[in-house]
Design a protein around this nucleic acid. Structure first.
Length: 564
RNA sequence: UCCGGGGUGGUGUAAGUGGCAGCACAGCAGACUUUGGAUCUGUUAGUUCAGGUUCGAGUCCUGGCCCCGGAGCCA
């Protein structure tokens, strides 16, 4: 019953440390391809790799896997470094690029040829596919498989010098065309791509493939544990093969774990890119996106994301994490730290008939009941106030405790009021305002006669309210498993049309006018909100809802409707 | 069909050499409450199946079933 508490990867690392397998060293790496923005799935990998290094006095390298210049851009390099730093990790001076090793990778390629372990193949891409065989049938040897070392060397050098057009030759490993593992059927090591690279510019026209570049890069850097996701499991024999053939400094161990999947969102870079390109979102940093940039703009903190990654664990089972776990994690943190304020999102006017016409009182409000040191503040109260439309029902259902004709409710930190009259639009029947009376003996909200008032609602003084936009954000998709989506049309169908709702003219307590971009608040009873750092201006904050509060009433109401 | 990997409550994740199946979230019930928030208490629910070894199997053996990945000059 007394388990080690370690996940299976940390267990391997601990064992290797105890057997002194790598001379007491722990060196990991996070190897993104700069072809998109980092998302929360990458955060899992970042926390794992940097975390393991940190815990064991090791280092974690940041290495860009930039071997395919047709898809990679500096914009992505910059965003990735920014996001890793924001998440709270530091690669010190260990910043690398696979492209740093192009020359060595090329030299090792010649070594392979000299050892008779690689050859230049001049089949077309289609022919190579055809010769590869199928899952159940072995492949056939390329007619160029037995070219002499000299011929191979000559051809490989001329590939490098730009003598041949794209697609005419590739360098292939000479392994086994009959292997049941397709990755071992003479995989391509280098291909010709006459396109400039974002770092090496036009010095190269041949580029190494992932399988070859990755293991060699790991070995060059002295990585001890090369942690990647499950889809590379079939590639491990090739990872090991390459390193076994070459005279490299060390042989890292590749370990695979299950990538993160979240309900109601997509995690593939391709689909994320599609959302951006098709303008279904504002961009990579849209607060509905599962990208780190999006989560950051939504109002998630780095701590909450790290904590989330801790909670979900690391294993080899394919799994889908309920997105509510993520939401619960940010709630836990913000509950402890976010200052409370009063904000009415969908306002309904209330006139307190027996409250003196021009009177204003400054009432004491607690900033954070979870943190007494946060102190108190004053909020103005007057004869006309705004309350939430949802907090009044003309015909209250069972278990609805809030305001209704003839009923009492407590205004937080203010008074107990009773609803005396409902004013409606003559034509539409829409409720436009309420007339209430207040009990002057209940100042601050307590009833000296000891009577119980079940509900407390939030409010904002109409004369003092600060008006601004508030955005309510929901899941991007209506289906819990949009990862199954195949094409663009299907994606469009499953997108949640209500993922973004912009509420204009929300009434906030006056102090919020000076809310600084990038700060977080709890709007009492409504949720946690973040001052959007992009769209807010000095004195004109715009709020994004990070997450709602747990809403017991919403649950009751839902089950009432559902149950009939 | 071939190769690789994986199946523990609704979800996720634990149980060094076989020894009371634990934790978190969700659910349900209750307490408390000037946020239907927070907090606290209690509780429902699980080893993919069939055999075998054993005093004893989530763990070991045999066989089946189901799921995921793999035929890029992508990573």
């Amino acid at each position: 019953m007394t388990g080690s508490g370690l996940d299976f990867i940390r267990e391997i690392v601990a064992r290797d440390l105890s057997t002194n397998k790598h001379g007491g060293r722990v060196c990991t790496r996070f190897p993104p391809e700069p072809n998109g923005y980092l998302h929360i799935g990458h955060a899992k990998s970042i926390c794992l790799n940097f975390g393991i290094a940190q815990e064991n006095g090791g280092v974690c390298h940041l290495r860009f896997d930039d071997t395919n210049p047709t898809k990679e851009e500096v914009e992505y390099v910059d965003s990735i470094m920014n996001d890793v730093r924001w998440l709270g990790f530091d690669w010190k001076d260990k910043l690398f690029y696979a492209s740093d090793y192009f020359e060595q990778l090329y030299d090792y390629g010649e070594d392979l040829i000299r050892a008779g372990k690689a050859y230049v193949c001049s089949l077309t891409a289609d022919q190579i596919r055809d010769f590869r065989g199928t899952l159940t049938e072995p492949g056939r040897n390329s007619p160029h498989r037995d070219r002499s070392v000299d011929e191979n060397l000559d051809l490989f050098r001329r590939m490098r010098s730009g003598e041949f057009p794209d697609g005419t030759h590739v360098l292939r490993a000479k392994i086994d065309m009959a292997s049941p593992n397709l990755n071992m059927r003479d995989p391509t090591l280098f291909r010709i791509r006459k396109v400039p690279h974002h770092r090496t510019k036009d010095t190269w026209c041949i580029y190494p493939m992932y399988d070859y570049a990755h293991c060699v890069s790991d070995a060059i850097e002295g990585i001890t544990h090369s942690i990647c996701t499950l889809e590379f499991e079939n590639h491990r024999p090739l990872y090991d093969w390459c390193l076994d053939q070459l005279n490299v400094p060390c042989h890292p161990q590749q370990i695979e774990f299950a990538r993160l999947n979240l309900t109601y969102t997509v995690m593939s870079k391709r689909k994320l890119l599609q959302l951006v390109q098709d303008r279904h979102v504002w961009g990579w940093d849209d607060p509905r996106m599962p990208t780190l940039a999006g989560l950051r703009r939504r109002g998630y903190t780095p701590e909450s994301i790290r904590r989330f990654c801790e909670k979900i664990g690391v294993a080899k089972n394919d799994s889908v994490i309920d997105i509510h776990i993520l939401e619960e994690t940010i709630r836990e943190e913000l509950n402890r730290h976010a200052p409370r304020v009063l904000a009415v999102l969908r306002p309904l006017k209330v006139v307190i008939d027996n409250y003196p016409e021009s009177q204003v009182e400054e009432l004491d409000a607690v900033n954070n009941p979870e943190d007494p040191s946060a102190g108190t503040r004053k909020v103005p109260f007057s004869r006309t106030i705004w309350i939430e439309q949802d907090d009044f029902r003309e015909d209250p259902p069972k278990q609805f405790f809030r305001l209704a004709p003839g009923r009492e409710v407590r205004l937080r930190y203010a008074y107990i009021i009773r609803c005396a009259e409902v004013v409606k639009d003559q034509e539409t029947g829409e409720i436009i305002e309420l007339h209430c009376t207040y009990d002057p003996a209940t100042r601050g909200g307590s009833a000296p006669d000891g009577r119980k008032v079940k509900a407390t609602i939030h409010w904002v003084s109409a004369d003092h309210a600060f008006e601004t936009d508030v955005r309510l954000l929901e899941h991007l998709f209506t289906t819990p498993d949009p990862g199954q989506i195949k094409d663009g049309a299907q994606m469009k169908e499953t997108l949640n049309p209500r993922s973004l709702e912009v509420l204009e003219g929300c009434k906030l307590e006056p102090g919020l006018k000076s809310a600084a971009p990038g700060t977080r608040f709890q709007f009492e009873r409504m949720g946690y909100f973040f001052v959007d750092p992009v769209d807010s201006k000095e004195g004109a904050p715009v709020f994004n809802r990070v997450v709602t509060l747990r809403d017991t009433w919403a649950k009751i109401e839902k089950s009432q409707k559902g149950g009939g």
